[in-house]
Design a protein around this nucleic acid. Structure first.
Lengths: 328, 328
DNA sequence: ATGAAAGCGCTAACAC
DNA sequence: GTGTTAGCGCTTTCAT
């Protein structure tokens, strides 16, 4: 504890435990055989000396990389400033910290998914969490990365998917709208290029169809601004619409604001519902009805799968639960 | 470009440029002498071969670490889920990516700032960005970390500070409130333990004092919930208050919602102003008057200083500009 | 200015 | 089950 003493290395631990370097390595890294006695002594020594492995040295020896890349698909680099991305990165960086690795953030241009291949060439990258992947992007994932890539959004044969259960969540919202007497429910979807939002639109179609209600779909892009224009489009095209369901709370909030500005009473004339349950949803007037999106859990799941090189299920769905507030 | 060829190393570059490994290293890492001829040939070779240095190997040799830690002070680990932190981490991870390093996220308990010392013992950590530091936390930064730590919030002699100009920003808000006829302006501050918010409170005191208006201060904590209770406190204690200025838009929005729920007209009876200009500020009803906070720029500045081991100015202030909307 | 060689701390063959 | 040894790819003395 006295100042600048050299930090303890694996060699120190081995010496202290009176075993060879190799044995100490086997015990601490978990791979390879070791007698119970050795195992115990090494662990004791490590604890006593406060040993923490050097991630750089380990990465160099295993060629494992020292960081996981969060790669976000989108039209422009601007997607990296999305609050949703911030939540994903923060959650990833938190689980990464526990494993002595870092996180870097990258934009994957929609028009050039091959960039992903170039990106993972970098030796520092030990794993990838893909956010909002497209099928073409997934197709470009190199074989060598197998088991070290996870997607938040749709997956593929080689890339396990971690995502909120869009279909069930959306269905629940529409069912609620219908159950509370709405009959002409419009939906503002996510960006058309984003496959993981298609399930939500499909669920909407199904539920609305079964109720004998008309299908009224308008494309969105998750922004508040688009919520405003999209809701205006909806009301212009189908003036008798009595509910608007937007994929993404920001869009829903934008729609809500525009509707009220246009003199429409919410929820009197038109009900509004969102998807994600962001912080602001509870703060709007009227407060927004929406469904939860456990982004942090999802990101942590994806990050864990990547970092532990776990052979994850092809698809892990996280539940989205309805939050009833005032807007519908 | 044919499949699994071993990635090019510095040795390849050296061979290709017909110089020694050492020379190639000197040229590419920028330190140490080299003839112009050698310099040129190495750069050409590197470009031609598409050489990218291995961050792990470099870190191992230089003991420089492979990641920068974003360390957030707060009462509980919950602070890591704050949207503000997400923005900081994302911006940091973006500049980190360009330098082949990663970012990890850590909570620094307020009641145990010494944890910071333990944290930076980890060899993987090459630099630290401190978010919301206290003076005690700053005092704990080890000498060995000098020049590799930056703060978003207050700094110290050894730790350069990068922050929005709280004082000027707050002053401008209060001046606006006064100029538009308000006379009894209350302020909901940030958490009392957070030194970087003191300047805002001081500015409020000064401006309000110069105008001959009363000082009405109530502590906040940046949350929307506290905005609600704090505004209730304000109105109970000083019923004739005609403006509420909250540090943090979430708090302002919480106050706004509570006020309206209590039948107070905003901005008719009471004006409300915030600080940060988060996305939702434009979406509330009435839309929130506030001042901008270039979080991404600030984080990028701090991260750059740390990563480039730049000897930064002791304090870099980023401008906060007033955004007039409907709430005041 | 340049090159040879010795590490940085760890893992992974390979022999015992 | 355990130890010896050779790297992983880079930086950095130290000669030249």
């Amino acid at each position: 504890m006295v100042g600048e003493s050299r930090r303890t290395t694996l060699a120190d631990v081995a010496r202290h435990a009176d075993v060879s370097l190799a044995t100490a390595s086997r015990v601490l890294s978990g791979r390879g055989p070791a007698s119970d006695a050795a195992r115990r002594r090494v662990h004791e020594a490590a604890a006593e000396l406060g040993y923490v492995p050097d991630p750089a040295a380990r990465a160099l020896a295993t060629r494992g990389g020292t960081r996981v890349a969060v790669v976000v698909g989108g039209h422009s680099a601007h997607v990296l400033n999305d609050p949703y991305v911030g939540r994903v990165v923060a959650a990833t960086a938190e689980v990464a910290a526990a494993r002595e690795v870092g996180v870097s953030l990258h934009w994957l241009p929609l028009h050039d998914p091959a960039e992903l291949g170039r990106l993972v060439e970098h030796r520092g990258i030990g794993g990838v969490v893909l956010v909002n992947p497209t099928t073409t992007a997934l197709a470009v994932v190199p074989q060598a990365m197998r088991g070290r890539v996870a997607a938040i959004g749709i997956g593929s044969r080689d890339v396990p998917s971690f995502d909120v259960d869009n279909g069930a969540g959306a269905a629940r919202v529409v069912e609620h709208l219908l159950a509370s007497g709405r009959r002409r429910v419009a939906m503002i979807t996510g960006p058309p290029w984003l496959p993981c939002t298609h399930r939500a639109a499909a669920a909407y179609r199904r539920v609305v169809g079964e109720a004998g209600s008309p299908v009224r779909l308008v494309p969105g892009d998750f922004t508040a601004a688009r919520g405003g224009t999209a809701s205006a489009e909806v009301m212009a095209r189908w003036p008798d619409t009595d509910a608007v369901f937007a994929l993404g709370d920001l869009t829903a909030l934008g729609a809500l604001a525009a509707l009220r500005r246009a003199g429409v009473d919410v929820p009197g004339d038109v009900a509004v519902a969102g998807f994600d349950d962001i912080d602001f949803a509870a703060l709007s007037r009227p407060a927004l009805t929406t469904t939860t999106n456990p982004v942090e859990d999802i990101a942590a799941g994806a990050a864990t799968a990547v970092l532990d090189r776990r052979r994850a299920d092809p698809s892990t769905a996280y539940p989205s639960t309805l939050v009833l507030r005032e807007s519908s």
